[in-house]
Amino acid sequence: MSTSTIVGTVDEEKTPPAADRRRRRRAAHNVEASTHNRGPVWTAAGYVGMVLVLLVVAVPLFWILVTSFKERGDIYVRPAQWWPEPATGQNYSELTTRIPFSDYVRNSVIITAATSLAKIILGVLSAYALSLMRFPGRSIVFIVVIAALMVPNQITVISNYALVAQLGWRNTYQGIIIPLAGVAFGTFLMRNQFLNLPGEIIEAARLDGAGPMKLLWRVVMPMSWPTLVAFALITVVSEWNEYLWPFLMSDDESTATLPVGLTFLQNNDGVTNWGPVMAGTVLAMLPILVLFLFLQRQMIKGLTAGAVKS
């Protein structure tokens, strides 16, 4: 028996020590940066572009904020006032006196929290079943779910309305929450995430004796947090801003949400006093803004997950 082996060139590469790795990464970065470096003109153009984008995004937001502190007569003037002069909290107090603002906030918080929670749980569980469990008819169930994603909700609104009205759930929290808890998007998103997980890790966990829930909780979810956070954030934002369904279902401030309530600040047929509207908009944005800043890191990771394979 021949013991000779053709090993080829012996690669000396072992795991580089951390410092070395860092140095290499920096070197790689520099190489990359230098290829992108096209002289001061392009750099300047890049900054101009960034500033433009910033303006496009920030100016309307700034305008909303500034207007919310203006007196009524200062809103429509030429030239435009870029700073409230004099500043007034009047709009904010009017906001709470003209409409039952705190009721709307309470409803929005309850409905958004309940709906988002239901969506996330259902989305994760259904995606898990549709990606990692084997059962007959799985692909048919998935196609039905995807078809649901394709149907705009304006179409299902009427039949949902009929159903909820027959149950006597109009103007109730459950009447608003339950029909919104449908999860085609979450199922789709999370299923793709789960399918992109390395199959061998799932198999390893199965061989290690993990049951379905343990597999989900200890192995699958920890690898999917970024996507889940992104999904959760998207869900919360869209539920917070959801208009059509809460509007159809609610009759008054006992269940109406903020987006519905804020419209009552606008005049139907005449001139709207935009000050309180802007104040309401600012207050409605705040919770989402805080949530976003809180989850931002995970969110960004989630959006780019899969772009770089570690």
């Binding site: 196609i143 039905v144 995807i146 649901a148 394709m150 149907v151």
Partner: peptide
């Protein structure tokens, strides 16, 4: 998919 999906929904 609509035929089946929408009808089902």
């Amino acid at each position: 998919a609509g035929a089946a999906g929408v009808a089902g929904l």
